Amino acid sequence: MTLSHYQWTIDHYHQAIDAGCFDEQPVELLKGEIILMSPERESHAYHNSECADYLKELLRNRAKVRDAKPITLPNNSEPVPDIAIVKPLGVEYLKHHPYPDDIYWLIEFAQATLKKDLTDKKAIYAEAGIKEYWVVNLQNSELNIFRDLDDSYYRTQLTLVTGNIIPLEFPDIVISIEKLL
Rank of each mutant, 00 (worst) to 15 (best):
127 E>L: 10
149 L>K: 10
116 K>S: 03
107 I>L: 04
25 Q>M: 15
29 L>W: 00
68 A>M: 05
110 A>V: 01
99 Y>C: 13
31 K>M: 09
133 Y>R: 10
136 V>T: 00
116 K>C: 08
153 Y>W: 12
29 L>Q: 01
83 I>E: 02
149 L>H: 06
130 I>H: 01
71 I>P: 03
90 G>L: 11
93 Y>Q: 11
34 I>D: 01
23 D>H: 08
29 L>V: 01
97 H>A: 12
90 G>S: 14
135 V>Q: 06
121 K>W: 05
97 H>Q: 12
107 I>S: 04
70 P>S: 08
60 R>F: 15
123 A>V: 07
119 T>R: 03
154 Y>T: 03
134 W>M: 08
25 Q>F: 05
111 Q>G: 15
29 L>G: 00
127 E>R: 01
100 P>L: 13
72 T>D: 05
152 S>D: 09
128 A>Y: 04
101 D>P: 13
38 S>R: 12
145 I>M: 07
127 E>T: 15
140 N>V: 09
93 Y>C: 10
102 D>Q: 12
57 E>F: 11
154 Y>F: 06
88 P>R: 07
116 K>D: 06
125 Y>H: 14
50 E>M: 11
82 D>R: 01
84 A>N: 02
44 H>M: 04
78 E>N: 04
32 G>S: 12
143 L>P: 04
114 L>E: 07
127 E>Y: 08
90 G>I: 10
110 A>C: 04
74 P>E: 06
53 D>Y: 11
102 D>T: 11
117 D>W: 05
